[in-house]
Every structure is written in C-alpha cells, then in structure tokens.
Nucleic acid binder design. Structure first.
Length: 285
DNA sequence: AATTTTACCTGTAGGC
DNA sequence: TGCCTACAGGTAAAAT
C-alpha cells in the first residue's frame, strides 16, 4: 500500500531522526529482507558498520540513505507492508522485525525494518553521478519531481498500445503511483481504467497529471493513506487520507459526484474501483 | 520487441 | 472447530 505520499512521509521522518548519524551495527534477522543485496546478509551488515548516513532521497516508491564518503546508498522499498521505524532500544522486538540498525551516538533510538509480507527490502548499491542508486536507473521520475517531463509522458502514452491504468502503474513511465492513487486520479479525471492511452489528447493527459499531483499532495498534507496498521510513519503513526478517498475501497457507496454506487472489478489480480456513470467504459474494450 | 501473466509472501475475513 | 478460498498488491522474471 505505501505509494509515493506514504514513502515521502517516511523519508521525511528519516531525515529528521536518522540522517547524519553513524551506524554502530546492523543485524539482519530475516535474509529475505536483504535479498536484493546479492552479496548476502553478512556483507550488507558489514558494509554499513561505521559509516555516516547522509540526507535521505526518494524516487517514486523507492527511498535511499546515502552513506557519506563511500559512493554507496542503502536502498529501501516498503513493498506491501514494509515499515521503517525509529524505536527506543528497549522497545520489544516487533513480530515481523527483519533488520535492526543501531547508531554510535548517545541518542536512545535505533532504526528498524519491519515487514509482514516480505515484499519489501533493503540493499546496498553504488550511486551514479546524480546520486541515484544504479539498480533503479530504470525507474522514471515521479510526478512531484520538478524535472518530470509532462510532454514526454504524453508522447509515450500516445505511442503505447496499453490502457491508462496500466500506464499509471508502469514505474518506467511514471513512478510513485500505485493502485489507490491510480483509482483516485482516474475518478477525478472521469477516465475509465481501460481507456486506451493512445486516445488521450494532450489536454486530457495534462488534466490527468494534474489530478495525480493534486491527490498525492493532498494525501501528503495529512500524512498519507492508511487502512490498517500496516502503513505507518517512522513513529508508528497512521495517516488520515483514507477519509478523503472518492473511489478506492468504496464499493457500493454513492459516487460523491453523481450518487451512482461505486463498482469494484477484478483487475490484474487486484481491484479497480470506479463510478460507472462518471467513468464510461471505452467502446472497443 | 512489446505486452501480459505469474510468482513471490503472510495475515485476515468469510463461507460452510 | 477447522478447513477452504478470496483478497490485500509492487516488482521483476517468465511467458506470450
């Protein structure tokens, strides 16, 4: 569930509580949590030890902690249920605690990676000249990135033979959008999820991008979206945007624009929520 | 070559 | 009580 706004909330928490601290020790409690670190758990822990953490960065749903003076960064992806928590040393270990990082300073807190479904993980990678970890070079800039190219995005949509929701979830075209914010932006844009991208006019693409940005900024302002305790900030607190959702999770409830009950449809092993009146299905689908 | 499907995971809810 | 299925779903490998 963590999408761009939730990951950004976590990044800000790390910037406040973890940046500029020196790692004393790292313990990997579940090898799957570092499976993207090909050299293995021991290498991961060893290479963290003794290094100072710089300012956390983010692209889409990925965030990373640069290690000063090494040209490397700790890359994190929360997957479905990953949490990065700043906890007091004496806090009892969480049920799904996977990685624990302690610091060489007088502060009482440590960094914990907790992940129930283990789709997320941590890994160490070299960074390029722009500071981006090399393994996420294929991830597109996200819509809140000042350098996101709206025109290039539109041209890519016109060129592709796919549908609009697939395109929104394609992290090589636009990053940071997941199932929740895709459905929300499509509802605001009155676009059906199966609309072919090649039929979108330049103004329609601009409107869609505007709604993607609006919904993400609004979610960010209230700390992100949480349906349960699986998404929390570094202090373990939930966000409030679930109260503002117009489509996602509202099957059977009246559309806030026209009153028609919102529908849920199975879609790519997940669900799409939409208003059948406001978001008309395309003819040739 | 581009596009679509599947595997990876665990916990919860609901039906019988 | 307990067994079964559906669902949550991002990413990347595999299949088409």
């Amino acid at each position: 569930m963590p999408e761009l706004p939730e990951v950004e909330v976590v990044r800000r928490g790390l910037a406040r509580w973890v940046a500029h601290r020196t790692v004393a020790d790292a313990a990997v409690l579940h090898p799957r949590a570092v499976r993207r670190h090909l050299a293995g758990p021991d290498d991961f822990a060893h290479r963290l030890k003794g290094h100072r953490i710089g300012t956390p960065s983010r692209r889409g749903k990925y965030l990373w902690l640069p290690l000063e003076d090494t040209g490397e960064a700790v890359l994190a992806h929360l997957g479905m249920s990953g949490q990065l928590l700043v906890q007091p040393h004496e806090a009892p270990p969480e049920k799904h605690l996977r990685v624990r990082v302690t610091f060489a300073d007088g502060l009482d807190t440590e960094l914990r990676f907790v992940d129930q479904r283990t789709f997320g993980g941590l890994s160490l990678h070299d960074t390029g000249p722009d500071g981006l970890p090399d393994v996420i070079a294929h991830i597109a800039r996200d819509p809140l990135d000042p350098l996101f190219d709206d025109e290039a995005f539109h041209l890519a949509l016109r060129r592709k033979r796919t549908t609009v929701k697939r395109a929104l979830l394609d992290q090589s075209l636009i990053s940071g959008v997941g199932n929740i914010y895709a459905d929300e932006a499509l509802w605001r844009s009155r676009l059906h999820y199966e609309r072919p991208t090649a039929t979108l006019t330049r103004p329609r693409t601009a409107e869609l991008l505007g709604h993607v940005r609006d919904v993400m900024n609004e979610a960010l302002a209230v700390g992100g979206t949480s349906f349960d305790s699986l998404y929390v900030n570094v202090n373990g607190e939930s966000g409030y945007f679930d109260r503002s959702l117009d489509a996602y999770g509202r099957e059977g409830l009246p559309c806030r624009r026209c009153g028609t009950p919102i529908r849920r449809r199975p879609w790519m092993n997940r669900s799409s929520y939409f208003c059948p009146t406001c978001q008309r299905a395309p003819r040739a689908s």
